[in-house]
């Protein structure tokens, strides 16, 4: 069983929801970033989404845009992110997903990417600007077996028949975009998310994680009951931006991981008391 499936199975057994953390690789530098990621994994992060910085991040709000610029200034790239995963694998078993725009992967070369990323210990990829229609050119390079997940996005604007087509070829988990907009806090519609998550679960056996507009532990706690995991990005990048020169940055990020986990655990407990069962 690959690391992603294994992690979601473990969480389900414990009646917990996954905390998926997005951080840009190399923000603000290679060494510092590696230290931050290790601290977050140690603090209980369930899945790491490692962001590949890109010069033109059209799906991202200002916080992640600035994080990407810092990482690029620090010399980061897709190659950096892959090396970083290799280093992380010496100390952690947390599943790692590469989150990228398509051009850095295309420039790296599809054959080289699908050789190097899994070898370094990446467990999957999510390409934000590569809808299934354009993904066919990757097919001949995909690794055999199901150890490298292709995570697909579903948006609030995705109609039902399209959603079914998308989830059919997905693996790892389904990433449910929480709002029509770019990454960053605000604009959540919990009822819409609950409904869409429910129809996704009816359409697929894969875990469903929600992200894009979730910024506080309260948001995460509110949404956790509807899904299998919550993706937090801008909230971590905010801390990196604000405390990047501070010696306790790693500890602050670890603290943030623990408070998100705690908030999500609490609603899980409340929920199980209400419904009289665990997890599910």
């Amino acid at each position: 069983m690959n690391r992603i499936d294994k992690r979601f199975a473990e969480l389900k057994k414990k009646g917990e929801k996954a905390l998926v953390g997005f951080v840009l690789a190399g923000d603000p530098s290679f060494d510092r970033s590696l230290e931050l990621l290790a601290a977050m994994c140690d603090a209980g992060l369930d899945v790491l989404e490692l962001g590949v910085p890109f010069s033109d991040p059209t799906a991202d709000g200002p916080v992640i845009q600035r994080g990407g610029l810092r990482a690029l200034k620090g010399g980061s790239s897709l190659a950096t992110a892959i090396r970083m995963i290799g280093s992380l694998r010496e100390t952690t078993d947390v599943p790692v997903i590469l989150f990228s725009y398509y051009n850095p992967i295309f420039a790296y070369g599809l054959e080289a990417f699908f050789r190097d990323a899994p070898t370094a210990g990446a467990d999957g990829m999510l390409v934000v600007d590569l809808p299934p229609e354009e993904a066919t050119e990757m097919n001949e390079y995909l690794p055999d077996g199901n150890d490298f997940a292709l995570i697909r996005l579903v948006a609030p604007t995705t109609p039902p028949e399209r959603m079914h087509a998308i989830v059919k070829n997905a693996s790892g988990f389904i990433y449910l975009i929480s709002k029509a907009g770019v990454t960053g806090g605000g604009g959540l519609d919990p009822e819409g998310i609950r409904k869409q998550a429910a129809s996704l679960r009816a359409a697929s056996n894969l875990p469903v994680c929600v992200g894009f507009g979730v910024s506080t532990p309260d948001d995460a706690a509110m949404l956790a009951p509807f899904v299998d995991g919550v993706v937090i990005g801008s909230a971590f990048e905010n801390i990196i931006e604000e405390y990047r020169d501070s010696p306790d940055l790693a500890e602050r990020l670890a603290g943030q991981v623990r408070s998100f986990k705690a908030a999500m655990r609490e609603t899980a407990v409340m929920n199980s008391q209400k419904t009289g069962r665990m997890g599910g």
């Binding site: 354009e134 948006a155 604007t157 995705t158």
Partner: peptide, 12 residues
């Protein structure tokens, strides 16, 4: 050519 955009824009 093609359509290399986030899923949110695909239906539009």
């Amino acid at each position: 050519g093609g359509r290399y955009v986030a899923e949110t824009l695909m239906p539009a």
